[in-house]
């Protein structure tokens, strides 16, 4: 791919979705976008870029963004996050909350494995039985993964990556060669399309935000701005969960890591108060 085409595409991705593509990942851009160019009947990426320089169809831009999003996920993927949920977050929530209300946001929910894992986890912890009013919201920029998520239909390979057999028997129903999340569990999770560059206000306030393996794909300035805006969508005593190797200490002032718990963050002013 020539430098000018690369520049236009990486600029477009950053502006439309916040995704960051560095020049060393040009091959990646090429391998993912060549099929899109073919689908839209362009001879090659250069021809597609020429179109993008003029009046581009917004559907084409959506397709390009969708092709570049990483949808890799699995059930209970981030074990550390669920351990922290159990050992740090839940005891806090159970002690401090008079109203039995809990709102959870899975940022970049992809095909839904994470929000469904959260629902299974909370059910196993007995929160639904104890009458808690729980909302789990999964968002993603990619419409097609959200449709997959809502359907809750997974291959044998996908369910075996992380679902213990007892949970498979309890929460899934076999549909031919696939497994579908039971209606009861599906009703516990809502999915909606969301571009993280757009305002987040309409989402309301959350007690827990799962944001593992998301920020790593974003441009640094966008990451900082997003974290500041997330800070406004989180309850005063809420928690932000990142992937186990992720840190945001050098990116934002809004959140501070809770000592000894890597990947677990809370609002900065609150961490200071409690110390």
């Amino acid at each position: 791919m020539n430098a000018a085409d690369f520049e236009l595409l990486s600029d477009l991705l950053r502006k439309k979705s916040g995704l960051m593509v560095t020049p060393d990942k040009a091959y990646y851009l090429e391998s993912r976008l060549t099929p899109i160019a073919k689908q839209w009947n362009f001879n090659d990426i250069t021809a597609m870029v020429l179109k993008l320089r003029g009046m581009a169809d917004s559907k084409l831009i959506d397709d390009i963004v969708d092709a570049m999003t990483t949808n890799e996920t699995s059930f209970f993927r981030d074990r550390q996050a669920f351990e922290q949920f159990e050992t740090t977050i839940l005891p806090h929530v159970l002690n401090k909350r008079g109203a039995k209300k809990l709102r959870i946001w899975c940022v970049a929910a992809s095909t839904g494995q994470e929000p469904y894992s959260v629902a299974m986890f909370l059910n196993e912890q007995g929160l639904y039985d104890k009458g808690w009013n729980i909302e789990i919201v999964g968002t993603d920029i990619n419409q097609s993964v959200l449709e997959h998520a809502r359907e809750g239909l997974y291959t044998q390979f996908e369910v075996q990556r992380g679902v213990p057999i007892q949970y498979l028997m309890k929460y899934f129903t076999q549909k031919n060669d696939k497994w579908q999340v039971n209606d009861d569990l599906r009703s516990k999770v809502q999915f909606q399309k969301l571009n993280l560059l757009n305002p987040l206000n309409a989402l309301g306030q959350f007690d827990v935000i799962f944001c593992g393996n998301v920020l790593v794909y974003l441009d640094r300035h966008i990451k900082a701005d997003l974290l500041d805006r997330m800070g406004k969508q989180i309850a005063n005593d809420g928690f932000l969960l990142l992937g186990k190797d992720e840190t945001i200490d050098d990116v934002t002032q809004s959140f501070k890591d809770l000592s000894q718990d890597r990947g677990l963050y809370a609002l900065t002013h609150r961490v200071h108060l409690s110390k």
Binding site: F157, Q160, R161, G162, P164, I165
Partner: peptide, 8 residues
């Protein structure tokens, strides 16, 4: 796969 056996 190795990943499946590991998770189990």
């Amino acid at each position: 796969s190795a990943e499946i056996i590991e998770s189990k």
